[in-house]
Structure formats: C-alpha cells, structure tokens
C-alpha cells in the first residue's frame, strides 16, 4: 500500500516535470501543443546516445538532455511555432499532431522501433527498506530531483523578475505588452525551458515509462490530463494533478490491472464535466 503511494508519487512528480512546460504554454499563449511529448522523447534518446554509446556519465547525461532539448525547443519555437500562435485551436491541433507523427516516424527511422534503456549506475539499482516499505533507489532519486526542480520553478515564478514578467504575460498579454514586456521573448524562453524540462523528464523517466518511438503518442493524453485537470492558472494545480494522476494510475494498475487506464480516463472526463476550468483553477474567472 505505502509502496504504491511511494511509486505513485515518484511517477506523479515525473509527470509534473514532463508536463509543466505544456501547462505554461497553454496558460501563456492559449496554445495547444500536442507535440510536447516529442521533446520528452528527444531528451530520452539524447541520454541513451550520450550514456550508452558515448559513455558520458549518467549524472552528466541528465543536464545535457535538458540543454539539448531546451535548444531544440527554442529552435522550433522561433522557426515554426511562432507562425501558429494566433491561429484557431483546430490549426494548432493539426500542426502539433503533424509534428508528433513526424517525430515518431523519424525516431523510428534513426533509432529503430525497439524499446531503449538508459544504462543506470549500479549505485542506483536496488531498494532501501524503511519501516518495511520497499523504496526503489532510482525512484527516490526521481522524487528528489523532481522535488528540487519543482521548488526551483516555484521560486523562479514567485520571486524573480522573469517570473513576474511571465505571470504578467499570463494574466493579460496586452497589458504586459503595454508595460514594455517583450512577450515574444518571454514566451520563447519559457518554451525552451519547458521543452528542456520535458527532455529531462524523458531522460529520467525512460526507466519507468519506457522509451520507444511511440512515446509522444502514448503519453500525450497523460500530459493533457495534467494540464486540463490541474488548470493553467498556477503551477500548483498541475503539480497536484500530476501527483493524483501518478498515484491513481499506479494504484489502478495494481488493483484492477485488467482495466488499464480506464479509471484515469473516466476520472478525467468527470472532472472536466464538473470543472471545465480544471480542478484547481482559482474561481471561475477567465
């Protein structure tokens, strides 16, 4: 029972790191980016190549995964996404689904269709036993890393100049522009960092989530659940939603394995019907 809670939390925090970039994109530009998972996959494969083939240490592989995907994200944002921001939602959906399809096929072409594993240092294998609860060392690492990242994000958003600009831009783009904030640049940076986080999540999560070319499609719905259920008005909402989703999914698969993700989808639909703005959205404004 507690192990489920533990595994679920690790899984949930991973989901949060994967999806928080998406939540900001959606909140900031009202942009539906179904291709977010493609950046996570890029991070995963990047680590595979670095660690397994080139022999970079795992601890260095993770930050590199972040950097590479952040650059990739920034590049895509500047060259492609900027053209689609002002378009109707249907266009955004089509465009980003197109990117997903391309990334799936391209990865398949370059890396092959089989499942990939990142070589993890021996020190991280095995379990701790605390009060009879088996805690995987690797999952503990995930919780620590993701926890630190979450705190850092919260700090950046709440305390720094960039954070206040970002919040101003989320609240009202036009006003923010009027105040002399370069919304385009803010968004570019945010997009890059969000992609980078997704890449880091993909690298960390390859072990738990599995890594193959269909990754962006398989997890698309999970990311979307996090942002729609959590709402986009803060990062606390998506965070709580991720944890709930993580625990719910792990518990669901443990207790009613035959139904797979059925429970999750059902809960999502119920939440969206009752609270179209998300479970944790503040009030009904917006």
């Amino acid at each position: 029972m507690l192990t489920i809670l533990f595994d679920g939390t690790a899984y949930g925090m991973l989901l949060f790191v994967l999806a928080c970039g998406l939540s900001v994109t959606l909140g900031l530009m009202n942009f539906i980016n179904l291709a977010h998972g493609a950046f996570a996959m890029a991070g995963g494969y990047c680590t595979v190549v670095l660690v397994n083939r080139i022999g970079v240490p795992f601890a260095l592989g993770l930050p590199l995964a972040f950097l590479v995907t952040a650059l990739l994200g920034g590049l895509f944002e500047r060259t492609l996404y900027v053209h689609v921001y002002a378009r109707p939602h249907l266009d955004q959906v089509l465009f980003t689904i197109g990117l997903v399809f391309m990334s799936v096929a391209a990865t398949d072409y370059v890396m092959g269709s089989s499942q990939q594993f990142v070589r993890i240092p021996e020190a991280l294998a095995g379990q701790f036993n605390v009060f009879g609860i088996g805690m995987g060392k690797y999952r503990l690492l995930i919780i620590v890393v993701c926890g630190v990242l979450t705190l850092a994000l919260q700090f950046i958003l709440a305390k720094t100049r960039f954070g206040s600009r970002l919040r101003a831009a989320v609240d009202d783009q036009r006003v923010a522009r009027g105040l002399g904030i370069n919304v385009g640049a803010v968004f570019g940076i945010t997009f890059a960092v969000g992609s980078g986080l997704a890449g880091l999540g993909g690298a960390l999560g390859a072990e738990i989530l599995g890594l193959d070319p269909t990754f962006p499609l398989k997890y698309m719905i999970y990311f979307l659940i996090v942002v729609t259920v959590g709402g986009t008005s803060s990062i606390t909402g998506p965070f709580l939603a991720s944890i709930l989703l993580g625990i719910g999914d792990v518990a669901g698969k443990y207790y009613v394995p035959s139904l797979g993700a059925f429970v999750i989808y059902a809960i999502m639909i119920v939440v969206l019907i009752l609270r179209p703005q998300g479970l944790f959205a503040r009030g009904a404004a917006r």
Binding site: I32, I221, L224, T228, M268, I269, L272, P276
Partner: peptide, 21 residues
C-alpha cells in the same frame, strides 16, 4: 460545455476508454 481543449480531451477520453474496454 467547455473550451476546444476540453472537448478535445473529452472526445479523446471516451474513445480511449472504449479502447481499454
């Protein structure tokens, strides 16, 4: 009810649920 995104999620959710079933 809901925005384009909620509609997207709900329609997708229904078909995925049926797939699981």
């Amino acid at each position: 009810r809901g925005s384009d995104l909620t509609r997207l999620m709900v329609t997708l959710g229904v078909s995925l649920m049926l797939g699981e079933l």
